[in-house]
């Protein structure tokens, strides 16, 4: 009994220590950003590995999600004779929720885990130590560009996800099921608001981008420098960032749409 309480306390302390380290790290990263802007080459390189390489999975998933929504939405709406509103349904769910959230989840799995593994292995093989001894600060040289690249890539990926999803819905709804072409777009335009929906969706994906890359970069940097430590850190990145995304989504939705 006492032991259990103690282990609980230990875990709690551990958690707060990690949280503290994560905050110190993000402050260091943010401090490094202005210097980083002088070396755009580093950022471009990272946007390539974080953003461009995630493109395929995002675009393909977006198209399929849009198609499924087209199908499901049509089947529901046709009962009410309201299949003209298919565009509204597809667009609103994508722009407000599915775009930012699913993109962030896929991003955590595709890019976040890769970031953690890469940084963790660099730590395990002493590459980060070697950089420090070469008077190169790994936080600024390795972590900051990756963080910035994730933060920039996420909203772009989410926008592409939503846009492709709307096209997927169009393909199924208009192309296959015969919803009126004009109605699909015009109903959508009259119900989707630039500020309420699009802008808020972009804000969401910016927040998710910040949090997911922060977690990924921190887990890698904080990993125990062994193969097991890195593999655990990678798992933690995916689990923690998924939970963080879903939790934050609820909070943001409550703040934005009420």
């Amino acid at each position: 009994m006492i032991n259990q309480i103690q282990s609980l306390g230990h875990k709690g302390l551990d958690f707060f220590q990690r949280l503290g380290r994560a905050h110190i790290l993000i402050v260091d990263i943010l401090k490094g950003l202005p210097v980083l802007l002088l070396r755009p080459g580093l950022i471009v390189q990272q946007i390539f590995s974080v953003g461009v390489l995630s493109l395929i999975i995002i675009v393909v998933s977006g198209f399929f999600v849009g198609m499924v929504m087209g199908l499901q939405g049509y089947n529901t709406l046709v009962d009410f004779g309201a299949e003209e509103s298919l565009g509204v349904m597809v667009a609103l769910s994508l722009v407000r929720e599915l775009g930012p959230v699913v993109t962030a989840l896929l991003f955590a799995g595709r890019a976040g885990s890769a970031l953690t593994a890469e940084i963790g292995l660099m730590k395990a093989t002493e590459q980060l130590s070697a950089m420090e001894m070469m008077a190169v600060d790994p936080v600024q040289r390795v972590l900051a560009p990756r963080f910035l690249a994730g933060f920039i890539s996420m909203p772009l990926l989410a926008a592409m996800f939503s846009a492709v999803g709307v096209l997927g819905g169009f393909f199924v709804g208009v192309g296959l099921l015969g919803v009126d072409d004009g109605a699909y777009w015009s109903q959508m335009q009259s119900s989707v608001d630039i500020y309420d929906d699009i802008y808020n969706g972009v804000i969401k994906s910016l927040v998710f981008g910040f949090v997911v890359t922060w977690i990924a970069v921190f887990e890698g940097y904080d990993a125990i420098p062994t193969s097991e430590g890195v593999s655990r850190a990678t798992t933690r990145t995916v689990v923690h960032s998924s939970l963080a995304v879903l939790g934050l989504d609820f909070i943001l939705t409550a703040l934005m749409f009420n």
């Binding site: 292995l121 660099m122 093989t125 002493e126 590459q127 130590s129 070697a130 950089m131 001894m133």
Partner: peptide, 12 residues
């Protein structure tokens, strides 16, 4: 300062 690490620690 220069340091030679025990396992090299090259950037892979």
């Amino acid at each position: 300062m220069g340091m030679l690490f025990q396992n090299g620690a090259l950037l892979t």
